[in-house]
Design a binder for these strands. Structure first.
Lengths: 188, 188
DNA sequence: GTCTATAACTCGATAGAC
DNA sequence: GTCTATCGAGTTATAGAC
């Protein structure tokens, strides 16, 4: 979906329908034949995004690392890579739209929440696989939320400051935190 | 600044100059006498925001708590309060604009970075005051960045899911992390 | 299903009187 | 310094031919 590329890089409001049409080499009539309006296009795009999450975001990282904890940090390493590849102009597309459209569009907000939930569930699956190495007191769902929190906040700061060290600092702290958690259960 | 209220709640692009004028009961001529254009108004507003950071965000929390570590969590507790007061529709105004305008406006991006830096510096001051209770290996600036990361990511998720538990989960994990750090240095 | 033309409207910004 | 009127461009969405 060409529209989503523009929505997620420029913002929903900042992207005109005319620009989408030009970039996609489509005519107005065709677009409005398939979608009721601009907002409908956004919601459809967010639904499509959800289907891309595993193949684009998770699978490449998971295929590099077998250890469930390392898989989490491999996903985070890929976000670092995206930041560097875009000259520190990358932003999590879902997070970006989360802040822009959540207020005025319940339908889009719901789709964004589903994207967040799917991301977090993949992280929680990793944590579940490493359950025996974590203290029993750890709420793995809550910890998965915290991983997403860290990614979103870290990307936001690195992009704003145009400095990867803000990303690295946040991930390093998450690493130390995981180090404490994992050290609580001695490996046998 | 009435304009900033609209920019930060609705977004910069989604707020028309006409709407600002109406809400502020001002006429077009007056606004453009003081500001060159809409963008100039945004940058001026962000500069003004920076001056509000201490009296609005920090001072109320600091006055409740004397302990530097508790001051950090008091600031975070105030963000929780803002979420609840707005029916889970609050978003950090600086973070929101960070994602929307950073790409197309270097001047605004710079001002947003200054706001982030000021926030983080207040947190680092707290950590510096508690330096003797933290392991020497802790990079306090990096940890302050991590606190901001946590706040931004936690607010984003709570607002998107319209569920305060996402905020609470993230802050709880930060608490546990601080617990590990503080327990490394036995109090005398 | 896709095309072009355009309707209906709102946008940011300006001009010129006071 | 503040007012009203308005410009010209750009906006989303539609109409009607093919």
């Amino acid at each position: 979906m060409t529209a989503m590329e523009l929505f997620t890089t420029q913002g929903y409001e900042a992207t005109s329908v005319a620009e989408i049409l030009k970039r996609a080499s489509v005519n107005s009539g065709s677009l409005y034949y398939f979608f009721d309006n601009k907002h409908d296009l956004l919601v459809a795009g967010l639904e499509f995004f959800k289907t891309l999450l595993y193949p684009i975001v998770m699978q490449p990282a998971f295929s590099r690392e077998a250890d469930p904890i390392e898989r989490i940090f491999a996903v985070l390493a890929d976000y670092r890579h995206r930041l560097l590849m875009t000259d520190l102009d990358y932003e999590c597309p879902v997070g970006k739209l989360a802040l822009e459209v959540a207020r005025h569009s319940p339908a889009a907000r719901e789709k964004i929440a589903e994207n967040f939930a799917a991301w977090r569930d993949h992280m929680r699956d990793c944590l579940d696989q490493a359950a025996d190495r974590l203290p029993a007191s750890v709420d793995r769902n809550s910890l998965a939320i915290f991983v997403l929190t860290t990614m979103e906040g870290a990307v936001m700061q690195a992009r704003t400051h145009r400095d990867i060290s803000f990303y690295d600092s946040s991930i390093a702290n998450l690493r130390v935190y995981f180090g404490y958690l994992l050290s609580e259960v001695p490996s046998t």
